[in-house]
Structures are given as C-alpha cells and as structure tokens.
Computed example of a mutant assay.
Amino acid sequence: MAKKKAVGQRGSWFATVDGIELPCAHRRWAKKNWPHYHDPFKPTENGPSASKILKYVQAIKDEKQVILTNDDEHLDDEGELTGFTRLNYIAIYGVENVSFDPDAGLKFTITKRLVELR
C-alpha cells in the first residue's frame, strides 16, 4: 500500500490528506488500552475553548476517521502533561462509539487501519 501525505498546521487539531481535512488523535491516549482511545481533556487555564473541542469531536463523529499522530509530550515541573508537538503522522484509522463528556473526556474505539501516512 502506497503511503499518502498528510499536511497539518501548527496549533491545528486537523490535517489534510488528498484534500480532505481529518481530525488528528494523539497516539498517547490509545497506546495503553488499544484499541480504546481516551483523552481526558483535563481543563487548564490556557486550555482550548469549548467551541474548539466541540468542533473537533463533531468532526470525529461525522467522519468516523482520525489521523493517529506521534507527538513530543510537554510536561510541567510536576510531570503533568501540558501539551504536544506533532512529530509525524502514522495512519488514518476508522473509529466508532465516539463520546465526549467534559468530565470524562473523549472516548472512541479504533476499528481499522485505513491508510498509511508519511
């Protein structure tokens, strides 16, 4: 299978493959409990707006696909995660059972590797 190119922009939660914009998902939140994804979206003072989160979650529900990414993790002095810098794109995966609750975070099940990325 030929690898396709994903193109994203700094600060965006989306990347484009073949002209289609897809939401990105951090490998960190899937690797411990594969194929179950759980991003706790812990609120922070300088965290994302509710509208940014809801647009992102709705895109995952609508597209039923995400781009899984490898990222450099930013930690504070106490070892708490404060952010990510995207290193590369892994693949596009199909997803199902998408749910979001501000207290529980974002959850979904990864179903199938659809497209290899570079």
Rank of each mutant, 00 (worst) to 15 (best):
H38M: 03
H38K: 04
H38E: 03
D39G: 09
D39M: 10
P40N: 10
P40E: 09
P40F: 03
F41W: 12
F41Q: 10
K42R: 11
P43S: 07
E45P: 05
E45M: 10
G47F: 08
G47W: 09
P48V: 10
P48N: 11
S49A: 14
A50R: 13
S51L: 11
K52A: 14
K52I: 07
I53F: 05
I53R: 04
L54W: 10
L54C: 08
L54H: 08
Y56W: 13
V57W: 12
V57H: 04
Q58V: 04
I60R: 05
I60D: 02
K61V: 02
K61T: 01
D62Q: 04
D62V: 00
D62H: 02
E63G: 02
E63K: 01
E63W: 00
K64W: 00
K64N: 00
Q65S: 09
V66N: 06
I67F: 12
I67H: 07
I67G: 07
N70P: 00
D71F: 04
D71I: 03
D71T: 03
E73A: 13
H74D: 12
H74M: 13
H74V: 11
L75P: 02
D76T: 00
D76Q: 01
D76P: 01
D77S: 12
G79T: 07
G79N: 06
E80M: 13
L81G: 04
T82R: 08
T82L: 04
T82V: 15
T82D: 04
T85C: 06
T85G: 06
R86M: 15
L87C: 08
L87W: 04
Y89I: 09
Y89L: 12
A91Q: 07
A91C: 13
A91G: 10
I92K: 03
I92F: 12
Y93V: 06
G94V: 04
V95H: 02
E96R: 14
E96L: 06
N97F: 00
N97S: 14
V98N: 01
V98H: 00
V98L: 06
F100T: 12
F100D: 12
F100W: 15
D101L: 13
D101P: 11
P102G: 08
D103S: 15
D103C: 11
D103H: 11
G105R: 08
G105E: 09
L106S: 07
K107C: 14
K107L: 14
T109Q: 11
I110M: 15
I110A: 14
I110R: 02
I110C: 12
L114I: 02
V115D: 00
